[in-house]
Design a protein around this nucleic acid. Structure first.
Lengths: 331, 331
DNA sequence: CTGAAAGCGCTTACAG
DNA sequence: CTGAAAGCGCTTACAG
């Protein structure tokens, strides 16, 4: 790789002049400039981003820590983040934790070592202390989807309203025995949906029908298992709410196997529509969150914080997006 | 952020000693070591990765260029890549091109600027020259899924066998009018599946039933539109092969709307199963490629190339994975 | 076992 | 308009 020095030598000027010419950072005589450009081109010169970053103290890279990508909302969020970051001149570094606090910790420690200017995280909630340390050390941090720590800015959907709205929607459709398939209450999105569900159920004077399984929360099997549990426990079950699409698929599969018709006998709704629900044979009604836009906003907010002069760093802010009902065939 | 210098000052030694102690790179007196560790801890010292990279000429980062993440096989590949890279001590930088050659070009130019040690790309095929330049400049490059350039190593599935095997499978099931939903022949995976399909069809003395639409190849709508086209054009259509799962979903939707039963009247098979097919109401038969493993192998191969002493860089190699039939309810 | 020095490739005051 | 110099934070021969 050719360096500034090589270009300088070929163009018969000092490296500082080359730097100025290439970065358009101060007047350089047009003729000199021309010579420099020619030399740079001839040598196929590309500036070394490491050296620039070291010198300028800015890496123009953000880190994104997610629990999983495949078949999750995170791949869509990540697309939004990457798109926006790229437009603002930032690269995106990803880390996949599989929701393992230990893996997450290692990822965060790598990222903080001068890898990135800021971090967007959908975390496990087990490394909040570390996250605060990282933030205190001057690296911007934003929580996305999962607000596990109040003292760090976040962008989330209104999970509680989402859970509650879904119950009311099903109630209006005539459902009286509504089951919930959800995930661990340690994670904000599941906790919120759980609370919204319970409050609405109580308000309407209905019975809570909860379920759980040993499968990973984010799995088809979990949905399948929980649906079977609900069907066994609640003879007159007439609706199933699934926290995420994949669980909904599992639930529909369980219903199909029992020859229970959707939506005539049991209605199904997903609380986190992300595109796949709309494509099913029996397309699935869902509460949709604007994932792509949330990703874009997260990148924007993070980079704003990174770019802010160090005196006036923005204070902690929490942004909540509404989810919108998309009615389809499963209800 | 505390620097080596700060630690050195606090521990009353030279920076070089601190560096050696912290990196365990040569003998340092135990007492000194202890003092240094204590000082580093007290200051919350974290080495600056930029400076290390600049000094060592290695960034320990690989770049991954994909056309899309959400609801594609690429999110699964990326998970495999990230996992393996992380285990080998590498971070993963991603770029999302949306299959725009111009965006891809910009991404590649950013990556080559000292951002990464190597690049894994599922490319558009429009920047082959640039890719060769990048490779020539000392950055390892591997094509994944899409082999658009023979002179650069690649890891792909056997698309031709995949297309051909699917035809033979359907033939054995009694199908005689088999339609294909595919994508642009400019991309190797689609070209391969197309060729495999055509050869098998010819060999069996059947008629080719192709389709196309104006929608993005990687969309539900494309599958839906093409299926309708095939149904209109081929009265006795009894099977549909879809290049990818999402197209298959579109096809099933079209069939459902016309009240055509799957698989009794028309069978459906996806040529790139990636998890979602198995979860459907009518679970979809598909040719499965080991996406996660392919991602792992790609990361491995790339990092091997990066780590190879510069004298003995591995030569171009092409790895082809077999796809395996997973029979489900749609056939 | 440890210090002093050079240097990775760049940018940016400081002179002139 | 351009050069010489310092320095970003680290590592690593080279001495001793």
């Amino acid at each position: 790789m050719a360096t500034l020095k090589d270009v300088a030598r070929l163009a018969c000027v000092d490296v500082s002049t080359v730097s100025r010419a290439l970065n358009n950072t101060s007047y350089v005589h047009p003729d000199t400039k021309k010579r420099i450009y020619a030399a740079a081109k001839e040598l196929g010169y590309h500036p070394n981003a490491m050296a620039q970053a070291l010198r300028q103290g800015r890496r123009h890279t953000i880190g994104v820590v997610v629990p999983r990508l495949h078949l999750t909302i995170f791949s869509e969020l990540l697309q939004g983040i990457e798109e926006q970051a790229r437009q603002l001149g930032y690269a995106t570094l990803i880390c996949n934790t599989e929701d393992q606090p230990q893996t997450e910790k290692e990822c965060l420690n790598r990222l903080r070592n001068g890898f990135v200017d800021g971090i967007i995280i959908a975390g496990t909630g087990y490394n909040n202390r570390l996250l605060r340390d990282i933030q205190a050390s001057g690296i911007a941090v934003i929580q996305l989807i999962r607000r596990q720590e109040k003292r760090i800015s976040s962008i989330v959907a209104d999970y509680e309203a989402c859970g509650s709205d879904a119950v009311h929607f099903l109630y209006r459709k005539g459902c009286r025995e509504i089951g919930l398939i959800n995930g661990t209450l340690e994670l904000a999105p599941y906790k919120g949906r759980h609370d919204g569900y319970c409050k609405a159920i109580k308000k309407l004077g209905l019975a809570e029908n909860l379920s759980q399984s040993d499968y990973p929360v984010n799995s088809f099997e979990h949905g399948y298992e929980c649906a079977n549990q609900l069907l066994d426990d609640v003879p007159r079950l007439d609706a199933i709410m699934a926290a995420i699409d994949i669980q909904g698929l599992g639930a529909i599969r369980a219903l199909t196997e029992r020859k229970i018709r959707v939506p005539e006998e049991v209605k199904v709704i997903s609380l986190t529509g992300h595109a796949v629900g709309a494509m099913l044979e029996t397309s699935m009604t869902s509460m949709e969150m604007p994932a792509h836009e949330m990703g874009v906003r997260a990148a924007q907010m993070l980079i704003d914080a990174v770019d802010a002069p160090s005196g006036e760093k923005p204070s902690v802010q929490h942004l909540t997006f509404a989810t919108v009902l998309a009615e389809r065939e499963s209800t």
